[in-house]
């Protein structure tokens, strides 16, 4: 009985010892293995490419001075993965905001406002419970000048004994005055790996 207990304990200890320890990964120095699915490094690359190209091309330079107001439109996820496209758009938004050239409105969106509080706060208008000097006046919201839209596409191929997964991150920046796409970009991310790897 004692021997059996000892053997089981030793077995558990060995298994626990073999498990990789949980550790923090520094995104600034990550040389870790690549996944066939899209990971944070892919979104970072796509966002970097997009923002640098937007800044270098002059597309986000407002000729009247000041900052453009951008709204995030639809980013279609045409992949086999469940992707929150905010992983991509948030990086772009933050970077454009930090550049001082573009500010994003959260008061307008395809599926309603991203931050509903903008309108909710206006419902306090004429309420006797609130000091009206602090309540937002009419006609203060700023309409967007630019719209960011895009699509993430995935294509899988069998290449010899390996699998090739292609992702295409396509983005367009539309001038809402003219409806013209004043900037467009595509970042291909191609991965090749074991055929048994899963890409969804």
């Amino acid at each position: 009985m004692l021997i059996r207990a000892l053997v089981i304990s030793a077995g558990i200890a060995v298994i626990a010892g073999c498990a990789a320890p949980t550790r923090y990964i520094d995104p600034a120095a990550d040389d870790g293995p690549v996944a066939m699915t899209m990971d944070y490094r892919d979104f970072e690359k796509a966002a970097s490419d997009a923002v640098e190209d937007m800044l270098a091309s002059g597309a986000v330079n407002n000729p009247d001075g000041g900052r453009y107001v951008m709204v995030v439109s639809r980013i279609t996820n045409d992949t086999m993965q469940r992707i929150d496209t905010d992983q991509l758009t948030k990086k772009i938004r933050v970077s454009l905001l930090q550049s001082g050239k573009v500010v994003t409105t959260t008061a307008v969106g395809l599926n309603g406002a991203e931050d509903e509080m903008t309108m909710k706060a206006r419902e306090l208008r004429d309420s006797e419970e609130f000091d009206q000097s602090g309540v937002q006046r009419k006609g203060t919201l700023q309409a967007p000048d630019l719209s960011l839209s895009g699509k993430i596409i995935q294509r899988n191929h069998k290449v010899g004994k390996e699998q090739q997964v292609e992702y295409y991150i396509q983005l367009s920046l539309t001038d809402l005055v003219s409806g013209l796409a004043i900037w467009e970009g595509e970042t291909p991310i191609i991965k090749r790996g074991s055929d048994s790897s899963v890409s969804w």
């Binding site: 690359k45 970097s48 990086k91």
Partner: peptide
């Protein structure tokens, strides 16, 4: 000055 990408390309 921070930029969008922290990692190496």
């Amino acid at each position: 000055v921070k930029s969008v990408g922290e990692g190496y390309r």
